[in-house]
Design a protein around this nucleic acid. Structure first.
Lengths: 344, 344
DNA sequence: ATGCCTCATCTAAACGTTTAGACAGAGCGT
DNA sequence: ACGCTCTGTCTAAACGTTTAGATGAGGCAT
């Protein structure tokens, strides 16, 4: 159906090689007269070189794969994914490449689909926030598929990663609560399979340590498997009498900050007068909460773009092995934090 | 690097054809003993058939392209796109296909990139809400690329489309305002390059016509190129004295409904007591506006899924020519609408 | 005229699959 | 013993490109 090189060659009375030279502007010179004659036929038949044939030969597809499994609901309700993807698309477009989406399944299923990722359909893969440990990473690395991971850092140097420094960001966030005068600062963990949650807890502890204040372990709620479980545990904590309950809380994700606000409200407490709340990520909804949530802004779009840049460098052989890139975060102060109750 | 059929064949002492039969479970039988011997080598070397070579031969890539150009900012801030895409991904995943994203550029640029869409990289294309007229559609149809358009209906039968019945939906929405007792009902148009905006205006007029009420043309604001322009025009209208200004308004998109609420507020008017507002789309933010916006819900995710189903049918040759699918909408009543002021 | 270089073009192999057709051996009825 | 059908496997062509090497025609210095 679609015209091929051969057809163009036949119609313009040259060999397919010459047509190829015209199409690609090289690598050999073509006589202007010939070029024009061939080009006319190309235009006439609306010829486009076939992508599959090309990549078969060049071993390059000009396609970047993005893997972000999810279990249920609208993927793109997940603002984290959306913004990161946005950054990825920006950069692939700049490189005249396309973006291939592998999503719409759970991680377990994604791991079964490894063939898809490593059958030469893509030149490389960006993996968004995989759980840790993640079999998929190992398999891709083993098959030597160029890979950059976002948001999940290895213990050592097992893969390339782009992320913010979660420990440091959490340290700053909790430090900010200290600076406001808080001492009974709680922590609510997030997804137990992510690496960022424990990293943020580590930053929380660091903030205490550098001030010589011991952590009150009863105020630290570990990562729970569901938000509901966290909500229940936190509610119990907030039911303590006034001088024993936390005056501030660090939720390791914005959704957890929102949860803390909701709990406070349901107990008749005011935010920030009775409880200061700080979140993490600065997704779009954080600014529209009531009160607007103080949070750590991750440059998500930039993270996506940077991961893609790294991936292209890896694909182009500009480096081998692994690289780790940590991007800057910003503490965004909004109305959900203030001095603790009873401060002058 | 990666092992090939040939390598597997060599190592297991059979021909590449036999290996192929093993890999694909057919189309010819293989002796169990042979099969097992070959399979062992395959597993050992972690062999995966090369996608490019396969699609070169089969003329099938198992990939669906999604085109949604945008001009600036985060694409995925666009909730419309996000939800539709979500539906598309759902269905391609079910079909064991992947989704290729063509976005991150403006329409003008997208039209220049036609090669990308029609060089056999994808088996078909879903085009999301293109402007009308749209050169890209013509080119793709001319090159016989399977195509389904979302949200932009042709005058006749020039392309396949999935959408809601905008005329009918608008008629119901405006009819609802009539039923509440409103008569001075304004309309604010949307993007002038979309087909849905004029369709919704048509439904607005139909609601008037079937009640024998003439449309007050001074209350109809045509589609403007910027939201600011609409805002200004609408503000002028709302500055009229009480018994001449509209008591209700139909904004052809949620963002326009939001605008109407904002204008009312800035003029010291209450919604819905002084002005009822109705929007269109029911994007996520509509429910969280103050007051929550009454609007027409489009089943966006379903639209995406349905378009993809149609595309697969077209690709599989289950039909030729074009099809039009109109999906059901729902009028979602929230707090932004009520009886007009002065009603008993 | 000869040899040599350059330039434009052509020929043909290669990329990694799928699959139609050829082929050989086994089983079976006569 | 012969021919026939099956069955399992092999050979080789084809898909549509890119590109290294061969070829041949001029131009130029000798």
């Amino acid at each position: 159906m679609a015209p091929t090189l051969k057809e163009i060659a036949r119609r313009s009375g040259v060999s397919i090689a010459t047509v190829s030279y015209v199409v690609n502007n090289g690598p050999r010179p073509v006589l202007p007269a010939t070029r024009e004659r061939v080009q006319r036929v190309i235009d006439e038949l609306n010829y486009r070189p076939n992508a599959a044939a090309r990549s078969l030969l060049k071993k390059r597809t000009n396609t970047v794969g993005v893997v972000f499994p999810y279990t249920a609901g609208d993927i793109f309700d997940n603002a984290y994914f959306s913004r990161v993807l946005s950054g990825i698309v920006d950069l692939t477009t700049v490189h005249h490449c396309s973006t291939m989406l592998f999503t719409g399944m759970a991680w377990e299923e994604a791991e079964l689909n490894i063939p898809q990722y490593s059958d030469g359909r893509c030149d490389g893969i960006v993996l968004i926030a995989p759980p840790s440990p993640c079999q998929l990473i190992g398999e891709l690395e083993a098959r030597n598929v160029p890979l950059v991971v976002i948001g999940t850092r290895p213990a050592g140097d097992e893969w390339s990663v782009v992320d913010v420094d979660n420990v440091e960001a959490a340290r700053i966030a909790v430090g900010h609560l200290f600076d406001l005068g808080h001492r009974r600062i709680g922590l609510i963990g997030g997804n137990p399979r992510s690496t960022s949650s424990p990293e943020r807890e580590q930053g929380y502890r660091k903030a205490f340590a550098e001030r010589g204040v011991p952590v009150d372990e009863t105020l630290v709620l570990p990562a729970a498997s569901t938000l509901d479980a966290s909500e229940e545990a936190w509610t119990r904590l907030m039911r303590r009498e006034r001088d024993r309950r936390p005056t501030a809380v660090f939720g390791v994700q914005d959704a957890i900050g929102e949860l803390a606000i909701r709990v406070a409200r349901s107990l008749g407490l005011r935010v920030p007068e009775d409880l200061s709340v700080i979140g993490f990520d600065d997704l779009a909804f954080a600014a529209t909460l009531d009160p607007p949530l103080t949070t750590v802004r991750q440059p998500l779009r930039h993270i996506g773009a940077e991961a893609t840049r790294l991936l292209f460098d890896r694909i182009d052989g500009k480096f081998t092995g692994h690289r780790q890139v940590l991007l800057d975060f910003v503490l965004v102060e909004r109305a959900s934090t203030s001095q603790p109750p009873g401060a002058t």
